[in-house]
Design a protein around this nucleic acid. Structure first.
Lengths: 267, 267
DNA sequence: CTGGATTGTCTCTTACAGAAGACACATGTA
DNA sequence: TACATGTGTCTTCTGTAAGAGACAATCCAG
């Protein structure tokens, strides 16, 4: 991610081999990488592997992990030499929920929606410039649409992404969306201009539907939740089979918009 | 800590006062303090106050907070210059829940218990040597017993505390319990020996009841949840009015123990 | 308007945290 | 038995991150 611009790599390089790394990193950054790495892997990781995973010296990771474990942010996992997230992070997370009306009520609403409709429902937000499924509730279909909470998906792949970007400057949008993001899972390629137009349309319409973008079997219906300031702060969405009738789709969108509007009345 | 050899410390020292400190702190530690401070205050804090709160130089806190906000661990709160926990922490917290059977099932069970009995129910664990309410469900009584999730209470004040310490060496227990911890909210003072005896008794009995410890109106019933290794990994407890009849108390304890046992069958 | 307090950004210095690498001890496997 | 691979702890070196402090810009009370 963040090498790039770095000042010219030592010309003599290290005779040893590749290892360009070398750069001395701030401890905090190492920690942030550790957390991201664990989040990405969704399981306990051995300290050695962790060091490899974040490309940091073993000794450093040992020190940091000890601090983090002592602090309770990480915990040694059952068998012995692996670590994963700790109780403290859970507690802080709950603090976040408590301090965040929208999230708390949004979760509730999403659970309701999936129970009422039987479809998979999700609460989505921008998370440092990335689309994030903040909460999802599975729905009752035999073929369950997989979607882990916290999963980060390119904005252009989703209906929610189009709504979340409504109101942003073109430049900002270009900044958030990489070239890769425009390539769909099946290899098709979106045009940035089309995407930006979609955003405008979705913003004006107050809802958005996408068909067969992430996979060929589903469509995604989304409605925006507004902050007091009138910005799109989140979306709630439903993931339904792509062959859902026009009529039913319409009904679901109406339902979704009503619920999203209700969520928007925030203090 | 480790000055000593250093070349003469400023001879004038700090005229200010107390704070001999000055010691240069690791950035990571500062961050840990920041998080604890926010957790303790349960609300967004201005950066200046944050610096005061964790007793750190302003410039340092500005730098760290920026990193943390960029990383999404903290978020700028509504009005502008305050910070609180961020979405990332919530996501990591959910990861913890997902990776932790006991917590997931325990939360469920606690919710069930409070619904079934109408009493306040809690899931408790040791969190780096401190008693922690990991999840609580309010119950239906008019006088709701307050108990925020994540609240940390001295071990000797609680029934759960007695169970959680079962199986620890005396020395370890002495280490975990400070003098202050032995002083109850109403000023009474427990004897360490009595407390340690309580622990043994509770451990042997497989449940624990305390009356009027934290406050004069409630008693606390707790049952231990065991890990595969046979250690007490958590407790579930009910907070009931202190005048609850012997008979009903007995029934509730039986219920509690059954549910705790069910939780103990972990993978 | 003035004086004090607070906010956010910057620069410079040096104490110290991160890195390197050696070590001792396990495992596994050829 | 030797040889590779992984783990956890220490010690030593040095580049840099934490801290002090100065600054301009707000804000507010009197």
């Amino acid at each position: 991610m963040q090498d790039g611009n770095a000042l010219a790599v030592r010309p003599d390089a290290d005779p040893g081999e590749d290892r360009i790394s070398g750069s001395r990193e701030k401890g905090l950054n190492r920690v942030l990488h550790i957390l991201e790495f664990l989040h990405a892997n969704q399981r306990a990781i051995g300290i050695g592997d962790l060091a490899k995973g974040v490309n940091a010296p073993r000794s450093t990771i040992y020190t940091l992990v000890r601090s983090l474990v002592d602090a309770g942010l990480l915990e040694m996992a059952g068998d012995g030499n692996r670590v994963y997230f700790g109780k403290k992070l859970y507690l802080y997370g709950m603090d976040y929920v408590r301090g965040n009306d929208l999230l708390r009520r949004g979760r509730q609403e999403v659970d309701n929606l999936s129970r009422e409709t039987g479809e998979t429902s999700e609460l989505c937000m921008l998370q440092s410039g990335r689309y994030t499924i903040v909460h999802s509730s599975p729905g009752t279909r035999p073929f369950r649409i997989s979607s882990a909470t916290g999963l980060q998906i390119p904005l252009p792949w989703t209906a929610s992404g189009r709504l979340l970007l409504a109101g942003f400057e073109r430049a900002v949008i270009e900044d958030m969306v990489s070239e890769d993001d425009l390539v769909l899972p099946d290899g098709r390629r979106l045009l940035l201009d089309d995407f930006i137009e979609d955003i405008a349309t979705a913003g004006a319409a107050g809802y958005c539907v996408t068909s067969g973008l992430v996979d060929a079997y589903t469509k995604c219906l989304a409605a925006p939740v507004f902050s007091a300031a009138g910005k799109v702060e989140a979306t709630i969405c439903l993931v339904v089979p792509i062959d859902t009738s026009e009529e039913k789709t319409g009904d679901l969108i109406a339902l979704l918009r009503e619920r999203a509007a209700r969520l928007s009345i925030t203090g």
